[in-house]
Simulated scan of single mutants.
Amino acid sequence: MVDPEETFYTEERWQNWLTRVEEEELDPENEDSARLLLNLQDDAAIAVAKIVSAYEDDTLDEERALDELEQIREIVLSEPSLEDEEKLMLIDGVQTSLVCVFYAAEEYVNSGTVGDAPVDEYVLAAADAEAEDDLDAALGYLVQAGTHIIDGSELDMSVAEELEYGLVSEWVNGLDSLQSAMSDPEVVEDDE
């Protein structure tokens, strides 16, 4: 079993990222700015991947895995205290992307892989649901896709290129981070 004192993610870690965002001149069109935001997102996804992997390896039981996921979700989705409106919007985009990651991980721990369609079919179904303003269904499809990604299925990001910008494209972006985290759960150093 995992050491009860082990922490997968901390408030301090998230705050370090927010401090970096606050201190940097951010321009979403600039590669370094985009990388900082992606690293912030990937770092949280890696923590989620580590919890799910520990659960799969039976080093975390279901209750502890769900508690750990809930703790990360509360830390990452809490309202950041940033002055800059534009930076708040950028962080909000990261948080939005990660919503689907948290739900997919919780669903996976609760129920394993959900549904039996290929991942890209869930993405397309989510896009159709979003077009019909059924965001709950859209999120549900992507949570199913996420359980498959956790289980080793691949999300072909060329499907994402065809998506209209919106919540589904943001959530798929989060699933891309989850996919990277599941294949290579190396910690992103927040001081790079």
Rank of each mutant, 00 (worst) to 15 (best):
M1V: 09
V2W: 01
D3H: 00
D3T: 01
P4N: 03
E5S: 03
F8N: 01
F8D: 04
T10S: 13
E11R: 15
E12H: 10
R13M: 08
Q15N: 15
N16W: 14
W17E: 11
W17V: 14
T19D: 13
R20W: 04
R20S: 14
E22A: 15
E22V: 04
E23M: 10
E24A: 13
E24W: 06
E31F: 12
E31W: 04
R35Q: 15
L38V: 03
N39H: 05
L40W: 01
Q41V: 03
D43H: 06
D43W: 04
A45N: 00
A45F: 08
A47R: 08
V48P: 07
A49L: 09
K50I: 01
K50S: 06
V52I: 05
E56P: 01
E56M: 11
D57L: 11
E63H: 08
A65F: 12
D67C: 00
L69G: 07
E70S: 13
E70W: 00
Q71T: 14
Q71R: 14
Q71G: 05
I72R: 00
I72S: 01
E74D: 14
V76P: 11
V76F: 01
L77C: 06
S78W: 00
S78K: 12
E79Q: 13
P80S: 06
L82D: 09
L82A: 07
D84A: 12
D84K: 08
D84M: 06
D84F: 04
K87A: 06
L88Q: 15
M89Q: 15
D92V: 09
D92W: 09
V94H: 08
L98V: 12
L98H: 08
C100P: 04
A104H: 05
A104R: 10
E107I: 03
E107A: 15
S111A: 12
G112W: 00
G112K: 01
T113R: 08
V114Y: 04
D116G: 12
A117H: 02
A117K: 13
P118D: 04
P118K: 00
V119W: 01
V119S: 01
Y122T: 04
L124G: 02
A125C: 03
A125H: 05
A127V: 02
D128P: 07
E130A: 15
E130M: 07
A131V: 02
A131R: 11
D133M: 13
L135C: 02
D136N: 15
D136L: 12
G140H: 14
Y141A: 11
Q144I: 07
Q144D: 13
Q144W: 07
G152T: 14
L155H: 03
D156Q: 07
D156T: 09
S158F: 05
V159E: 02
E161F: 10
E162S: 15
L163F: 07
L163E: 11
E164V: 05
Y165H: 06
L167G: 02
L167F: 11
L167I: 10
L167T: 07
E170H: 11
E170T: 08
E170M: 15
W171E: 06
G174C: 07
L175W: 03
S177M: 11
S177D: 09
Q179N: 06
Q179W: 04
Q179K: 10
S180L: 08
A181P: 10
M182Q: 07
S183I: 01
D184N: 11
E186Y: 07
E189N: 11
D190W: 13
D191C: 03
D191R: 13
D191Q: 09
E192L: 13
E192Y: 06
